[in-house]
Nucleic acid binder design. Structure first.
Length: 562
RNA sequence: GCACCUGUGGUGAAAUGGAUAUCACAACGGUCUUCGGAACCGUUAUUCUAGGUUCGAAUCCUGGCAGGUGCACCA
């Protein structure tokens, strides 16, 4: 039986003994400070009014009633503050905890709260022809962490990206490429595509005479009609996907499937036409969705424009159809920047009328923007920096900082760790102020701090092994560090149910700090005291496992040396 | 104008309605003959504002102030 259930039973029987009707659920939580015990409950305070007693007196009565049938896992119970009942766990409880961590190793922290559920996570959706920027990195960091959290939930997880491969903007770029290179264009450099996009946008604004040609290109691309532009388009798409995948591999992501906007657009267009009139309405040559009057916060939007092409809204309707038809998710999570909240309110409101469960099964996660503050890196990176440029700049900082020579790969994993950490430490949806000289530090609250602690433990274990001292848990005083370690699975669970990677970040920092204090206060590997060394190495090893698993959930590598 | 989101030390952030609001950076002061100093220990300093709900509010409700974002053929 889990410890919380155990406590719950104890409190319920105490309440029964006092003739008090127990509430449906009794809340147990960890006090902020370990000196207040390992668990506490507010049950006395919440019942005080109902039974017309002073909360503190009531707490004491409950405490007295519980004390009669304590299990050996509980050392003592106290009443504190305005009426909290605090539980202090005993050695037998903790003595089970560390060996369990050591045994489960990479599986420690996995739960079964979502077993048998199918969960789809869509993230990192980029626009072909536009480069992979730091904005995409934010999206990716959050998305990838959600993927991994969901994998720890026991769910069957599918990953998907929705690349934007078709739009008027892309037609403009193709126009430029076609004009410059003709149909024997060889796509071998993504920068050429990015430049063509920028140039095309400019040309289109400056020169109205090309509008007709661009529209024709767009029509042919939408219709997938054999043509020189389609040929170029396919080449570019292939190149971009390869580039996209190489960047994502570096960041630790993989996608099971892609659904392209061109595909979703056609599907969406059909659905909308089928429901017009009805859910959708014709207006000024376009097809629009007008929400009910009571839904003031939802705007009217065009789904099919007057040229007959599906807009972003229609594409997302098509995407919903394809997602649910192909993958059958119980929960469909998608990650975008927060500016798109109103857009998805419209899409889901309309979508709900097409198929009811689309809306109720969808979860929209958002991220903010990355603002740059520091002088040094801002000037080096310019406006909206490319992910690769930022990665390179941060890797250089890491290298400068390093006291010994590591491989470029290690530098990069530290740089990625630092960047991902600063994204995931905050609640998703907020803008992030990114000052490479402070927020992206390598000290204190940082990815490298966690990685460093992990590497330090690895080298301790190695040192022990050299002296033939191996982790082996003995009984001993229970350190504050140990009192934190067993909580990892609860943290993972709260991160899963709350879609909250930041809970993992906060917890890992606490663990790393607790370990480093432990390290500072104790000689861990000590040849003159083998038993104690074995015991401390066991605790260290358990800490290392938790750091590693936790960093995995954040999509951050845990190097053994750095 | 309408709608949505956000206001936490000097700075950047955390906190299922709970105890003395947590952490880091910066500043100041220490540890150190390093089991890896990207470390450890300490000091200073915080919930925009006015009400309300509650045993109990950074959190929930109402008003105000400040900032951000979105509002029909871009994605």
């Amino acid at each position: 039986m889990s410890i919380v259930k155990n406590l719950d039973t104890l409190v319920r029987s105490a309440l029964a003994e006092l003739d008090i009707l127990a509430p449906e659920s009794i809340v147990f939580e960890h006090p902020a400070d370990l000196s207040h015990g390992d668990f506490s409950t507010n049950v006395a305070m919440s019942l005080a009014k109902q039974v017309q007693q002073n909360p503190k007196d009531l707490a004491e009565k409950i405490q007295f009633a519980i004390s009669k049938n304590l299990s050996q896992e509980i050392e003592k119970i106290t009443v504190a503050g305005p009426g909290f009942i605090n539980f202090y766990l005993a050695k037998p409880f903790f003595q089970k905890a560390i060996p369990e961590i050591l045994e489960k190793e990479n599986d420690f922290g996995k739960t079964n709260i979502l077993t048998d559920k199918k969960i789809l996570v869509e993230h990192s959706s980029l626009n072909l022809f536009k480069p992979f920027t730091v904005g995409h990195m934010m999206n990716n960091a959050i998305g990838e962490s959600l993927v991994r959290l969901m994998q720890f939930s026991g769910a069957n997880v599918a990953t998907m990206a929705f690349p934007s491969d078709i739009s008027l903007g892309i037609a403009k770029a193709i126009f430029v490429l076609l004009e410059k290179y003709g149909s024997d264009f060889i796509a071998d450099d993504v920068k050429i595509l990015g430049n063509a996009y920028v140039e095309g946008t400019q040309r289109y604004t400056d020169d109205e005479s090309i509008h007709i040609q661009v529209k024709e290109i767009a029509d042919n691309l939408y219709a997938k009609k054999e043509s020189p532009e389609l040929e170029i388009f396919e080449k570019c798409k292939k190149l971009n996907i390869a580039y996209f995948e190489s960047v994502l591999q570096k960041l630790g992501s993989h996608f099971d499937t892609y659904i392209y906007e061109s595909e979703a657009g056609n599907v969406g267009k059909e659905i909308i036409q089928k429901n017009t009139p009805g859910i959708f309405t014709e207006s000024q040559g376009a097809i629009v969705y007008i929400p009910e009057e009571s839904k003031k916060h939802i705007n009217t939007a065009v789904f099919i424009n007057s040229q007959g092409n599906p807009t972003y809204e229609a594409k997302d309707i098509g995407l919903l159809q394809l997602k649910f038809e192909r993958i059958h998710p119980d929960v469909s999570i998608f990650v975008t920047d927060h500016e798109q909240i109103p857009h998805f309110q419209i899409v889901l409101d309309a979508g709900e009328k097409i198929q009811k469960d689309w809306s109720e099964k969808s979860v929209h996660m958002t991220h903010g923007r990355m603002n740059f503050k520091g002088q040094k890196m801002s000037s080096r990176l310019g406006g909206v920096p490319l992910a690769e440029d930022m990665l390179q700049a941060v890797s250089e900082e890491v290298k400068e900082r390093s006291t010994h020579n590591d491989s470029a790969e290690v530098y990069e994993s530290i740089a990625i760790g630092a960047i991902k950490f600063s994204i995931l430490r905050a609640k998703p949806g907020q803008n992030i102020n990114f000052d490479p000289e402070t927020s992206l530090s390598f000290e204190g609250d940082s990815g490298p701090y966690l990685q460093y602690t992990h590497a330090r433990i690895c080298s301790l274990i190695e040192k022990g092994a050299g002296l033939n001292i191996h982790p082996n848990y003995h009984t001993g005083e229970i350190s504050d560090l140990e009192k934190m370690l067993y909580r990892f699975p609860e943290i993972v669970e709260s991160a899963i149910t709350g879609y909250a990677p930041q809970h993992v970040v906060t917890y890992l920092l606490e663990v790393a700090r607790a370990f480093n204090s432990f390290y500072g206060a104790n000689q861990i590997v000590d040849v003159s005291n083998k038993d104690v060394s074995q015991h401390r190495l066991a605790v260290a090893r358990a800490t290392q496992i938790i750091l590693k698993n936790g960093l995995y959930l954040l999509g951050i590598k845990a190097p053994e040396k750095m």
